[in-house]
């Protein structure tokens, strides 16, 4: 009895050794430590960057955060990102499907889309003032705009790159045109559609931060910019970190939703 318990304990330890406490993990932790070390050295021992806070100062700033304030700002930015992203999905996805699936829609829509796309989204900031009086709408429009093109392009691309044999097989079985879209083309294009959404949510964060920095209507971008104006740089860096964390969280969220819809891809 006790021997078998001992055995399972040592098996558990072996498992831990194999998956967590191994050299790979040590090297990964070292990567982070080396980054922090390089940062500290650069700041401490060069004249150039001496005004930049050290990692230690940023860590210390963490304890001066007013949680109520920061969570309000996080919430504001999140709402804007989600509104913009969902609008982008709601409008971009059908357009992507139309361009990818119908030749006529492709001729009608694609040239215009292709003409506007190279303009960096941030270049639209001055013009949005003409579109909307309400500042909140301006910010949401910009985040929407950031999400729109990656979603259109990846949906379209995913559809046009579906392996021809799949629709052919479905045609032999007697599927109709609507069934072809819903049961064959969209499921087959799903991986790339989700890739598009992942790119899109990254760009919505970029847009929301830029817009908030300019608009002074709260949000993480504004919060970072505010601490810049009062020269509290540890807070600035902390804010940058929080923005990065939020972006990563959204990206993971898309992955989780994606793996729910594409169980067939998590098979190995």
């Amino acid at each position: 009895m006790s021997a078998s318990t001992l055995n399972t304990t040592s098996n558990l330890w072996k498992q831990v050794r194999k998956t967590v406490a191994n050299w790979t993990t040590v090297r990964r932790i070292m990567s982070v430590l080396l980054f922090l070390l390089a940062w500290t050295i650069l700041v401490q021992f060069t004249g150039q960057f001496h005004q930049i806070p050290t990692p230690a100062a940023v860590f210390a700033a963490l304890f001066q955060l007013k949680l109520g304030v920061i969570f309000t700002e996080i919430f504001r930015s999140f709402v804007r990102v989600l509104c913009g992203f969902l609008l982008g999905l709601l409008i971009g996805f059908p357009i992507g499907v139309a361009i990818g699936y119908s030749r006529i829609a492709n001729y009608l829509l694609f040239p215009a889309v292709e003409m506007v796309r190279p303009i960096p989204p941030i270049a639209w900031i001055p013009l949005t003032v003409l579109f909307f009086i309400n500042i909140e709408s301006q910010i949401v429009f910009l985040t929407f705009y950031g999400a729109f093109f990656p979603i259109v392009y990846n949906t379209m691309g995913g559809i046009s790159e579906v392996d021809i044999r799949l629709p052919r097989a479905a045609m032999s079985f007697g599927i109709n045109r609507m069934g072809m879209l819903w049961k064959i083309i969209l499921p087959a294009a799903m991986p790339q559609i989700f890739t598009g959404m992942k790119v899109a949510i990254g760009i919505t964060w970029l847009m929301v931060v830029a817009a908030e920095m300019i608009a002074s209507k709260g949000g993480l971008g504004y919060w970072v910019w505010y601490h810049h104006t009062v020269m509290e740089y540890p807070m600035v860096i902390l804010g940058m970190g929080i923005i990065g964390l939020c972006g990563a969280l959204c990206s993971v969220g898309i992955d989780v939703i994606g793996s729910h819809f594409m169980k067939w891809r998590n098979i190995f």
Binding site: R165, L166, R168, A169, I184, P187, A188, W264
Partner: peptide, 9 residues
């Protein structure tokens, strides 16, 4: 088909 055309999903 060559290479197969099962629906992977």
């Amino acid at each position: 088909f060559q290479g197969g055309a099962l629906f992977p999903w």
